[in-house]
Design a protein around this nucleic acid. Structure first.
Length: 285
DNA sequence: CGGGGTTCCTGGCCGC
DNA sequence: TGCGGCCAGGAACCCC
């Protein structure tokens, strides 16, 4: 029987979805030792085998990256801890199951000491994983230079405004870069910009509006997390439920439909190679 | 070092 | 019904 945690198909996992997966995984695998691994030969996945022999002692998250803490067995001194870093990409998902999965999209499968398996499946292979020395992220440039977590109390309006002011790129593109703040992808960028009334193509955002945008990002991500994430197609939690946030989206995916604030038809266009939906009236330049 | 463009993938969907 | 073509999209990567 397959127990799925974060089995995403056609969904872009952003911070709330990755955090949902993290919370589901903690009680299932923390404390367990990895005894073996089969991995897809692609450089995106073959590092999975390097986790063999380690014990999983914690699961953290930074932005959209899952950070699975590994302790050597037996413990060494000093302890050379490592981390299994997983990015779900667009269609990646992690599952824990009691028999070997038979799945054409399986990219890595770790056997656990208690006879279970942890599997990473990823239809489109946009995900990737790596095993690194703890905190050593130089081979993962986006993680290496990742902005603060939305929950970071030191991230205030002034700091966010400063981070947004360091270049003249479109504000939405800066959000997607993961530099001003970690974990925002296309869905929640559109949602937060709509809520804050900021045009996605703005290149300068004043101090006051930057504070509003930061508040909107925190609200949007928090509400999505409370709803177990956004399901656009086939995401299922271990109990087989969908996330519930897709019904709450006000902007993303609603191009051509009326703005829920003013009634104007929402517009859609490509902005820096990303589909972008916004309200020409509420989010005027 | 920043920014712009390209690439990786495949199921789902649309139109003929 | 079948099929070609297009779309979604995070982040690495390459080049200027």
């Amino acid at each position: 029987m397959l127990l799925l945690t974060g089995h995403y198909v056609g969904l872009v996992p952003e911070l709330p979805e990755v955090e949902t997966v993290r919370r589901q995984l903690v009680p299932l695998i923390v404390g367990t030792r990895i005894t073996g691994c089969d991995a897809h030969p692609s450089s995106r996945f073959r590092d999975a085998t390097l986790a063999t022999g380690y014990r999983i002692h914690r699961i953290n998250r930074r932005g959209k990256y899952l950070l699975i803490g590994l302790l050597p067995v037996p413990p060494a001194d000093p302890i050379p801890t490592r981390e299994l870093v997983i990015h779900l990409g667009m269609t990646g998902g992690v599952s824990v199951c009691s028999s070997p999965p038979n799945d054409p999209y399986l990219r890595a499968c770790w056997s656990l000491e208690d006879g279970r398996y942890m599997a990473f499946r990823d239809i489109r292979r946009f995900g990737r994983l790596a095993v690194v020395a703890t905190g050593e992220y130089s081979l993962l440039p986006t993680l290496h230079r990742l902005g603060p977590e939305p929950s970071d109390p030191s991230l205030d309006g002034a700091a966010f405004h400063s981070a947004l002011s360091s270049s003249r790129r479109h504000v939405k593109t800066k959000l997607l870069s993961q530099r001003p703040i970690a974990g925002v992808g296309n869905i929640y960028a559109d949602e937060a910009l709509w809520r804050a009334g900021i045009n996605p193509a703005a290149r300068r955002v004043g101090r006051e509006r930057a504070t509003m945008l930061l508040d909107s990002i925190r609200e949007v991500l928090g509400e999505a997390l409370a709803n177990n994430g956004t399901t656009l197609r086939d995401y299922r939690t271990p109990g087989g439920e969908s996330g519930r946030n897709q019904d709450r989206l006000d902007c993303y995916g609603r191009g051509g439909q009326p703005c829920r604030s003013c009634g104007e038809t929402l517009a859609t266009r490509q902005l820096d190679q990303r589909t972008t939906t916004w309200c020409r009236s509420c989010q005027a330049r």
